[in-house]
Nucleic acid binder design. Sequence first.
DNA 1: GCGACAG
DNA 2: ATCTTGTCGC
Length: 230
Amino acid sequence: MTIDYNTLTVPQATQLQKEMKDKIVLSPFTGKINYVAGTDISFDKFSTHVYAGITVLSFPDLKPVAYSLIRKEVHFPYVPGYLAFREVPALLDAWEQLELKPDVVVLDGHGIAHPRRMGIASHFGVLINRPTLGCAKKKLYGIYEEPAENAGAWSVLYDKQQQPIGSVLRTKNKIKPVFVSPGHLTDIADSRQIVEQCITKYRLPEPTRLTHNFVNQFRLGALEAGFHRL
DNA sequence: GCGACAG
DNA sequence: ATCTTGTCGC
């Protein structure tokens, strides 16, 4: 599958999402996790470049073992529901130069918890054909009831037809919950359990949190582009 | 027409 | 996402 992300229009992007939707595989996550990865994007306010990063952590101890950083020019604007078309190109480059491939990737955004069930986690997962899941800080689509205020509490995120599309998970006591949904090659329950196992002392899972730190240092010039082993 | 709206 | 300091609460 070859996608020209540079001259794509939103209507064409919508059509692509509808076509890609049928390629998503939602199955229980089987096998052992030795490595989990996180992804993130950062950019300067009025720049046409984005800074992308992927961090690989050992599992279940969650220690960073390697990371990939890359800067790339982007043309697609940020439009709610089309985040993948803006961030995936850079993430694919970072993925290709990642010498150590993880067993599952945590994306900063949604998976199937999307108007057309094609959030960035599903989009990226289908393209790399690997297990992925989305963990977002805010809801994009769906209906839910607030989970209890204790860490570990969660509720189901439903679409307009009352079909489950993800989980609203409280990762810390009395702190705003995160929105977890499967991307590709995993399901709702397993994607939630994986995120729970990636929580230490912060609201966001370690893969996402550490990658955000690396990418920001990269954007500020404190780290170099490329693949790095720790 | 109004409200919602990942990063 | 990014622009930005201190401040309130557990």
